[in-house]
Nucleic acid binder design. Structure first.
Lengths: 205, 205
DNA sequence: ATCAATCTTGACTGATTGGTCAACTGTGTT
DNA sequence: AACACAGTTGACCAATCAGTCAAGATTGAT
């Protein structure tokens, strides 16, 4: 089956493809690409391995499909930052939305983290293309806000990186934080939300 | 060969073991545990695979040896934080030392990150044992500083997490930051150092 | 020089895994 | 009912990989 064709999907196709992607996300985000097997994914999706390969031609094809789905959602909150909005509100809102993304989609965050930690072999064109452009653009916006004295002056790129680092940490390193805190991650996110709100309030002031 | 015996190591043993660990660090930190092969490690170490297995009984044994080496170095800067020192200096110093660790030992940081992202299967006893104890102890120290009004009040655990997140990000996500900034990572670390210095100055005030 | 212990490796093995294929079944359209 | 096509799978294959083994090479103490 060629997933590139333009025919509308049948009921069974929709159902199986989404089951496969859900299963693959679960498996890839825990074991990484090389550490995951098609049998695991097929089993988790409730179908046979040949049937899985009927919908996706290769293991890589599944991985690519997952990553491209993810990258859109990933960019959205930053893209949505409004240059004409209130500087501090826009940034605080970005922090909140990014933390919500970690809370609600930790597997996606870990899938992405796995990919970057290992040198981003499959998404470097995305990183130095779409992502770089967007970040450069928003860094300029933030820099403009700093020029007007609406928020404190810092390197805007590193300010963006710090938001990423602080919010993703709770998803990517959840195993660590929850073992150290001895709490389930939902309560940790509640505290994290208060903490991040407070420090960014001070940073931006 | 049993690595548990107490005999002193020969010249050849020292040489080969350190070559193996160096090679394994390089390979594991890029490919993860399951993504790395003994052939890769043996080749990088300049020896044959059976010879590698003469020094370490299994792939896991190499991994465990690397991780335990790493965990000591990992704890050191936090353990070294002096309860009787100047609160702000001690914390700023911890940030600096942690960033230096990322700059000078990015492979170790990525090895650790790989392990945590995948749920910390092999080091959870360390996390909820030694690490938790140390973090709890230092959180109390920080909390004491906050009580005395020496630094601003926050959840001390999350303050520690934020230092980890911000400093490790530059090692673990180096692929991302260097592609977006279009600079080599050494220059990025110079800017990161200035940025982190500035924001923690504001956070702690 | 000898000899025992250490060190080294080519050639294997058994298990796992990504992917194929031919044959079979289910679906929906006429 | 009949038929074309979508969907499904057991059995298989070739490649890869962790780990073994027996035989040979090196080392260093005497």
């Amino acid at each position: 089956m060629q997933r590139s064709s333009e025919k509308p999907l049948t009921r069974i196709q929709k159902q199986n493809i989404s089951a496969i992607l859900e299963a693959a996300l679960e498996v890839f985000s825990v074991n990484g690409f090389r550490g995951s097997t098609l049998d695991q994914i097929a089993c988790a999706a409730g179908i046979s391995k040949p049937n899985l390969l009927y919908y996706f031609n290769s293991k890589q094809a599944i991985h690519v499909a997952l990553l491209s789905e993810l990258l859109d959602a990933w960019l959205y909150p930053l893209r949505d930052m409004n240059p004409n909005g209130d500087a501090k509100d826009e940034l605080m809102n970005y922090v909140r939305r990014k933390l919500d993304l970690s809370r609600n989609f930790p597997r996606e965050s870990r899938l992405f983290a796995n990919e970057i930690v290992q040198g981003a072999p499959r998404i470097d064109t995305f990183l130095k293309g779409d992502l770089k452009n967007l970040v450069d653009e928003k860094a300029k916006v933030i820099s403009g806000w700093m020029d007007k004295g609406l928020i404190a002056r810092f390197d805007p790129h590193h300010l963006i990186f710090s938001i990423w680092a602080l919010t993703q940490h709770y998803a990517d390193f959840e195993a660590q934080t929850s073992l150290i805190m001895g709490k389930d991650s939902d309560k940790i996110y509640d505290d994290a939300s208060i903490f991040l709100e407070a420090i960014f309030e001070k940073i931006l002031a």
